[in-house]
Design a protein around this nucleic acid. Structure first.
Lengths: 116, 116
DNA sequence: TTGACATATATAGATTATCTATATATAATT
DNA sequence: AATTATATATAGATAATCTATATATGTCAA
């Protein structure tokens, strides 16, 4: 089953920040890591990620540096900042509130027996 | 805390269909009911709902009828169709997959102790 | 009874997060 | 040498939401 793309809107920033909270990564790596960690549910596109990273860097949520220690090729690594960590914490709270509200609506109503 | 609006994208259809799966409702009522059931987390705007309802009706997911039994005023009630119920079931599955994938990403990573 | 406010539906246009498509370049593989 | 995978980047399209606006009716208080 293919997950409707629009369902992801708004949570991509949170997921990307979370990846960087675990360790520094380069863009391409984030795409693969996100796919792997979500059992292939999320397939973030390069055209989504790179502009997002540029935007986060511009806002001071992440910083970047070039490095070729892990490869013959120079890659652009991103690192989460203190400000970025604070944003991540905020987004996590939002997600918790949002998802529990959705579950509450889905669970509620007249025909409770049917829906559970 | 205000939930980032974008986070809702893609789940509004599911939530509206779920409301109608419980009982027939008119538009304004759905806005209030959704707000109530979600502890005021969701504040669906009329400008979002009415075009969405028209679209769902045009696709045969809901049907509508005018009625003034509950009020001095004639209201436009919506009813979910068989096709709409099938769509709702699909959206619920999508939501389950999506939300558990998000939670998996949020939980995973190197610094597990910190994030839990 | 008049004015204000809540109820109720509707549409146009703006916003924005995502996508697709395209471009460029390097490393690895065949 | 050619092809494929890796890696980053940007422009333009798409679509779900919002805001703003319009219109009309019912209710309640002054």
């Amino acid at each position: 089953m293919t997950i409707e793309k629009r369902l992801l809107t708004g949570s991509t920033t949170m997921l990307v920040l979370k990846l960087l909270a675990d360790k520094d990564m380069y863009g391409y790596q984030m795409i693969e890591e996100l796919s792997k960690r979500s059992d292939d549910t999320f397939n973030l596109k390069a055209g989504t990620l790179y502009p997002l990273l540029h935007n986060l860097e511009q806002k001071g949520m992440v910083s970047s540096y070039n490095d070729n220690a892990d490869s013959a090729r120079v890659r652009k690594y991103y690192s989460i900042t203190k400000k970025g960590k604070a944003l991540l914490a905020e987004k996590r709270t939002e997600w918790k509130i949002y998802s529990s509200a959705v579950n509450k609506v889905l669970k509620g109503g007249a025909t409770l027996a049917e829906t559970c």
